[in-house]
Design a protein around this nucleic acid. Structure first.
Length: 478
DNA sequence: GCATGATCATGC
DNA sequence: GCATGATCATGC
């Protein structure tokens, strides 16, 4: 290893050498050598491994040591996607760290893994992801190293403990990324064939790896790119606050709790703000309670990728409105399988539900609670997703127009014909359904397959909804 | 009063 | 001009 163009014993040398790779690609620099590596199709996705071998001329290892074991640096490559609107970069997906060995896990401490061990100091090489372009030909866009700052350690440790305790209790098969904030337990490996034994249970569990969740990875990216700016609003100013109250969730709840039982308008008065009665009223009120400007993002929520939902509850404890998500792209569902689907990612996230309850015609803040979807319900969502996909594949979304008693097509207030569809309905599942979600019904997304009845290649935007009854019974009343 | 389709208002 | 979080509107 004496002829290396960097000093493999020194982190700083490795990092600065890595930065020289920015703007290039494996294909552009080592095109002819790629073939000599005899990469299997599986390896072709492992850009990090190839970079290590061709660029660093360093033999990769997959044992429990870090990749650059003398220097204690773990090399990770990951994709960046460029946002269309803002042109900013975001993580294409979570960053997968070491495999969670369910049996040996119980011998390793958090510190051995994330403070001193393999995952403690990362050398991150981000390539620019573009659809249809092989990783090896992708441009290296951003390079930097990452050590967990002290204020993140309590949250990471708490995450690790949640994973640890679930495995210890024989519940490895029920692990979910929504269990945790920054550090996730993501599935790794393809369909079937990857079931592992776990301690204290005879049920086999999917293979999973520790991962840095997309929100947290975006935070890292922003730091490395020096783009961290005032658009983030911190809830937790000092790490000590966190250690004292034990968990991030408790900190957030303890900030909302003082407003329990108080009318929305009184909360405005207390906070010395005036909000308009728009559909954004309750989300805005919540941000104000958390001490964040309305137009700011909340740093911890971004890092942990927490989904906030403001819900109105009626006097008889019913919830009238189902809970919407962003509109999906028909083409994307058509192309994806469940494991890599957007919806699976979404429902594995952690949610913060804040309930505003009606009393004599006015709403007061009733309670706030963190939640993530139980294992069995996630399977039910999968079923609904598959049914949705089937309609898209078959070109059978459109069912019929809505007619009045005289047999004339009904039109909406805005003058658009009302169309009924075959997508999964409220009654088809006790967890979720599909309904329109756009500015109005003329806002469409392209269809991958022509709609058989409508003879068009587009349809009104739709999204998945949590059933209102599900939210009431499984979250509000629990 | 529920189920379903449609749309509002804001912010980027 | 559209994405989004949320809520409205109408028929049955």
């Amino acid at each position: 290893m004496n002829n290396l163009p960097y000093n493999h014993l020194e982190k700083s040398s490795i990092i600065s050498f890595a930065k020289e790779f920015i703007g290039k690609s494996i294909q552009s620099e080592f095109g002819e050598e790629i073939d000599s590596l005899n990469l299997s199709n599986k390896d072709k996705g492992q850009l990090g491994k190839v970079i290590e071998e061709l660029y660093f001329k360093y033999k990769p290892n997959s044992d429990s040591n870090a990749d650059f074991k003398e220097a204690g640096l773990e090399l990770k490559s990951s994709g960046l996607k460029k946002l269309k609107k803002s042109k900013e970069y975001r993580a294409k997906e979570r960053l997968v760290l070491s495999i969670i060995n369910y049996v040996e896990l119980l011998d390793l401490t958090f510190e051995e893994l994330f403070v001193d061990g393999k995952n403690s100091h990362l050398l991150l090489i981000f390539y620019l992801y573009e659809k249809g372009i092989n990783q090896l030909a992708s441009e290296i866009k951003l390079v930097g190293d990452w050590k967990y700052p002290p204020e993140d350690i309590p949250i990471l440790k708490n995450d690790w403990e949640i994973i640890f305790n679930k495995v210890k209790s024989g519940l490895a098969h029920e692990l979910s990324e929504g269990d945790t904030l920054y550090l996730g337990a993501c599935t790794k490996g393809g369909k079937g064939g990857n079931a592992r034994h776990q301690p204290n249970s005879t049920i086999k569990a999917k293979q999973r790896a520790y991962s840095l969740k997309p929100g947290y990875l975006n935070h890292i990216i922003a730091n490395i790119a020096q783009e961290e700016s005032a658009v983030y609003g911190k809830i937790i100013k000092r790490p000590e606050t966190l250690e004292k109250i034990q968990s991030f969730e408790n900190v957030v709840i303890s900030m909302i709790e003082p407003y329990y039982g108080i009318l929305d308008t009184e909360i405005e008065t207390k906070l010395k703000i005036e909000l308009k009665r728009s559909y954004q009223y309750y989300p805005s009120l919540l941000k104000a309670i958390l001490g964040v400007n309305i137009n700011q993002k909340i740093e911890e929520f971004e890092k942990a990728d927490i989904q906030i939902k403001a819900i109105r509850v009626e006097e008889n404890n019913s919830i009238e409105q189902s809970v919407s998500f962003p509109a999906f792209k028909f083409e994307q569902i058509y192309e994806e399988n469940w494991r890599e689907s957007e919806l699976k990612d979404l429902i594995e996230k952690k949610f913060l539900f804040v309930f505003f309850k009606k009393n004599k015609g006015e709403y007061f803040l009733d309670k706030a609670q963190f939640w993530n979807m139980p294992f069995n319900d996630r399977n039910e969502v999968r079923r609904v997703w598959l049914n949705t996909k089937k309609q898209i594949q078959n070109g059978t979304i459109f069912k019929d127009y809505a007619y009045d008693k005289k047999g004339v097509i009904r039109y909406s207030k805005k003058g658009n014909p009302i169309r009924k569809n075959n997508l999964p309905k409220l009654k088809d599942s006790n967890v979720c359904h599909v309904r329109p979600h756009g500015t109005d019904s003329t806002y469409t997304y392209p269809l991958p397959v022509e709609d058989k009845k409508l003879k068009t290649m587009e349809y009104s935007k739709q999204c998945f909804w949590f059933n209102a009854i599900y939210v009431r019974d499984e979250i509000y009343l629990k």
